[in-house]
Amino acid sequence: MKKKILLVDDSMMSRLMIKKCLPSSDQYSYELQEADGGTKCLDFYRKAPYDLVLLDLTMPDMDGFETLEKLREMDPDARVVIVTADIQQKAAERVFALGALEVVKKPTSQEKMTAVLEKYL
């Protein structure tokens, strides 16, 4: 069965950049969906859970911290990897406390994203 990935980022450019780093879908057999904000992410997830959520932190409608918190409330097993430009230690501590699996720094790379998929799918 195909795994489902949700990519959450308000910036179209950022989504493009992340998608470029993801391995091809036949190589890893996954289905990718995009959400341009925290609210939409929660809506999508409520309808049907995803196997992995790639989540940005700085977003205008609902930031990544809040989205992560609500997501994990909805589904305590939600698997979330943070992809962010906020690379401060404090930010990482906060998202790990909220149950994130890993923090990937922007701009990311193909090696990095392949490793993430390998590990969490």
Partner: peptide, 9 residues
């Protein structure tokens, strides 16, 4: 979008 992303990073 690119400028925004560069500033963001």
């Amino acid at each position: 979008g690119a400028l925004q992303e560069i500033i963001n990073i």
